[in-house]
């Protein structure tokens, strides 16, 4: 138990150093943290980077797994223009984007 706690503390320390370094070098945060980045064009198109997997997809709802939770996109006529292992482009009439914490 003690070893696991030490390891956790070491990781947190490393992460803290990495964050400070990234802030000093002005590196984009999503690159350092591995967080998803969502770019929205009006209410018609969404470009999502760093998603992990598709959890649910209908024409009214798209739920994606991202780091730290799920990203829920709701609207109507939602279609996935293309996707690869990291990026996805979604088109449709977007009503809401919601981040569901785990």
């Amino acid at each position: 138990m003690g070893g696991a706690k030490q390891k956790e503390q070491k990781n947190a320390c490393l992460s803290g150093r990495r964050i400070r370094l990234a802030e000093a070098l002005d590196i984009p945060k999503e690159t350092v943290y591995g967080l998803s980045c969502v770019t929205m064009i009006g209410d018609r198109e969404i470009y999502i980077e760093n998603y992990m997997s598709i959890l649910e997809y209908t024409d009214k709802k798209l739920r994606l797994r991202v780091k730290g939770g799920n990203l829920l996109i709701t609207g109507c006529r939602i279609c996935i223009l293309y996707f690869n292992d990291t990026d996805m482009q979604v088109r449709g009439c977007i009503d809401q984007i919601q981040f569901e914490r785990r």
């Binding site: 024409d59 279609c79 996935i80 223009l81 293309y82 996707f83 690869n84 292992d85």
Partner: peptide, 9 residues
């Protein structure tokens, strides 16, 4: 590494 496109429900 297979990437379908224009996915419509």
């Amino acid at each position: 590494q297979i990437f379908p496109s224009n996915v419509i429900y």
